[in-house]
Design a protein around this nucleic acid. Structure first.
Length: 579
DNA sequence: GCCGTTTTCGGCCCGACTGTTTTCAGTCG
């Protein structure tokens, strides 16, 4: 089930949204948002805390602590119910439209009675919004575009959400009688960045009770179809989940079939056909006699086709079959290869955990080294200063001595529209590592953006280009640049490209990763963690790297420390003594 | 609503960008 911290954070976010729509005190709105982030990232499950302990969470005071306690006790909060009754249901969903905030959502409701996305689309269609104060034709046009983009995102859900849901469901299913194996398949197992519906596979000799249990799970909102071996449901949150129950003896063939991709399966069946065989979800058979040859494990089936087992993350028919036939499947980077995280934040800027907590968590992950890369001054809202950075460096050195862990003091710099960065060279030279990222002016022309990124990666102090395209999945599209030119420049200048593991970023994307490889760039797979639980996102970044066919040698944070240090240092001019 | 070695009251993330406004409001990061 969902972590209690996430449920509480959702509750507080709803509080903040409804207050904002009700034109409440903006500082109060922010207080709820801040508390939501603090709870979400808090290292202890809030359901285990009493009101006094809740109050001790930074950014949670006595009032919010009381509301959290009420929520955990009763499942709701009186004051929130009151707010809900005063704000039309549906109005809140409009805040998810990029570019539409609480003020304008409220205005559309007050003056046009708009309470839902479909009513907003009607109003757009009738050109009624442009007559409201502060609106015009251009705002209508931008809004229509934003809605269109969000919708053609296609109802797909981010990998991280789908995986969490699948794991919750599998945990429930595994405890059902007669279930011998349970796994997720489909695009989720291939770790695509977004997932259409969740495919689950269960091995059992008694399918009916398993199906019955599945359709009665608490997460199920609606049963779309229910049969003895296949059922489809829609969860309470609107995600479609398909379950297939198969005999344990055909596990391997079924898992292959339901993992896909469709294109990969078609190629395999073609290979089988040419060898006088027939491949289906029930196994690999002799075409003439129909005799079953293999079906139990994926390795068995691939093996009988004359192929090594193909990792699910590359089963897209983009060359993996040919490589497998030739015995040249790439060695892919694995989570266990990762020796450290090179992009993380603390509460010195917009993280929610203090430096010692993050370092302790990194140590629990078994990392050999760990970089702290808080934001730099040009992201004004973070109020970073040189003094703060130096004080943090002092603390880091002290923590290194205390924990015996190798800590790299870094910074996440801001790439300005002209490609320049925060701080001067002397100050930059004091950092162990610098990640440079675009945080503003996302809509420059391709030419300007390319020049901007190239200038940034060519800066001798820049080691990693952070979340290179700036996309947030389902929300903001990638910036426009000549990526091949950027990749060439990065490879030439010795700057690594980040594969940001945050599930709504996954940036670079698998496709761009593959292109970047061809330019010979190195990668840094990092979490961009803003809280302790975010460190677990590493697996999403690793999966994205795998989808891009990346091997461990190409990933700088699989390297031993001395090799990593040489990579980080080699581009820098000899450091001038600054006294 | 949260928070505090300048404050228990009075601040609170600050600037860019966009489109609308004839001087600024809303949204975003």
């Amino acid at each position: 089930m969902a972590r209690s911290n996430d449920l509480v954070a959702q509750m507080l976010d709803e509080f903040a949204d409804l207050l904002a729509i009700s034109a409440g005190d903006p500082f109060k709105v922010r207080a709820y948002e801040k508390a939501a982030r603090a709870v979400e990232g808090y290292h202890v499950e809030v359901e285990r805390l009493d009101e006094h302990e809740l109050d001790a969470i930074p950014s949670v005071g006595s009032h919010i602590a009381r509301k959290i306690a009420e929520f955990l006790r009763t499942g709701t909060v009186d004051e929130l119910d009151g707010l809900r009754s005063r704000v039309p249901a549906g109005l809140r969903t409009l805040l998810a439209v990029p570019g539409l905030g609480p003020k304008r959502a409220r205005q559309a409701y007050d003056e046009l009675g708009v309470t839902s996305l479909s009513e907003l689309l009607d109003a757009l269609h009738d050109q009624r919004l442009r007559h409201l104060r502060g609106w015009g034709a251009k705002s209508e046009e931008n809004l229509a575009k934003a809605i269109h983009e969000a919708q053609t995102g296609g109802g797909r859900i981010p990998l991280g959400v789908a995986l969490g849901l699948a794991e919750d469901l599998l945990e429930d299913l595994s405890s059902v009688d007669h279930v011998s194996k349970a796994a997720y398949a489909g695009s989720l197992r291939r770790m695509r960045d977004t997932i259409g519906d969740v495919d689950l596979l269960v091995a059992s000799d008694h399918p009916e009770p398993v199906m019955q249990a599945f359709t009665e799970l608490p997460l199920v909102g609606r049963v779309v179809a229910q049969g003895p071996t296949k059922s489809s449901v829609v969860t309470t949150k609107g995600v479609q989940v398909d379950l297939r129950v198969i005999n344990p003896s055909v596990w391997g063939a079924a898992l292959m079939y339901f993992t896909g991709s469709k294109a990969h399966n078609i190629r395999l069946r073609y290979l089988a056909e040419r060898a006088g065989l027939k491949l289906s979800e029930y196994g690999l058979f002799e075409a003439g006699t129909g005799r079953l040859l293999v079906s139990q494990t994926e390795e068995d089936v691939y093996g009988r086709l004359g192929l090594p087992w193909v990792p699910p993350t590359i089963r897209e028919d983009t060359g993996e079959i040919e490589a497998a036939v030739a015995g040249q499947l790439p060695q892919l980077v694995e989570l266990r290869d990762i020796r450290g995280d090179l992009h993380t934040h603390t509460n010195l800027t917009d993280g929610v955990a203090a430096l010692p907590e993050m370092v302790a968590a990194a140590k629990r992950h078994g990392y050999r080294y760990y970089a702290i890369t808080d934001h730099a001054p040009l992201l004004y809202m973070q109020r970073m200063t040189a003094d703060k950075a130096l004080e943090q460096r002092r603390q880091i050195r002290q923590l290194e001595r205390q924990t015996g862990m190798v800590l790299l003091h870094g910074s996440e710099l801001n790439i300005q529209p002209d490609g320049t960065l925060d701080w001067d060279d002397d100050f930059l030279a004091g950092f162990d590592i610098a990640v440079a990222s675009v945080h503003s002016a996302f809509r420059q022309s391709r030419q300007a953006m390319t020049a901007r990124l190239v200038r940034a990666v060519e800066n001798p102090f820049v080691n990693v280009l952070g979340h290179p395209t700036g996309r947030t999945i389902g929300h903001r599209r990638a910036i426009d640049a000549d990526w091949d030119a950027v990749f060439r420049a990065a490879a030439c200048a010795g700057a690594a490209l980040e594969i940001n593991s945050f599930p709504d970023r996954l940036d670079l994307s698998d496709e761009l990763v593959r292109r970047a490889r061809h330019a010979g760039v190195k990668f840094a797979i990092s979490t961009d963690a803003h809280a302790v639980p975010h460190l677990d996102y590493m697996r999403f970044g690793v999966a994205t790297a795998q989808r891009g066919w990346v091997g461990p040698a190409e990933v700088i944070n699989t390297w031993p420390l001395d090799k990593l240090r040489r990579f980080l240092a080699k581009r820098r001019p000899a450091r001038r003594r600054t006294g």
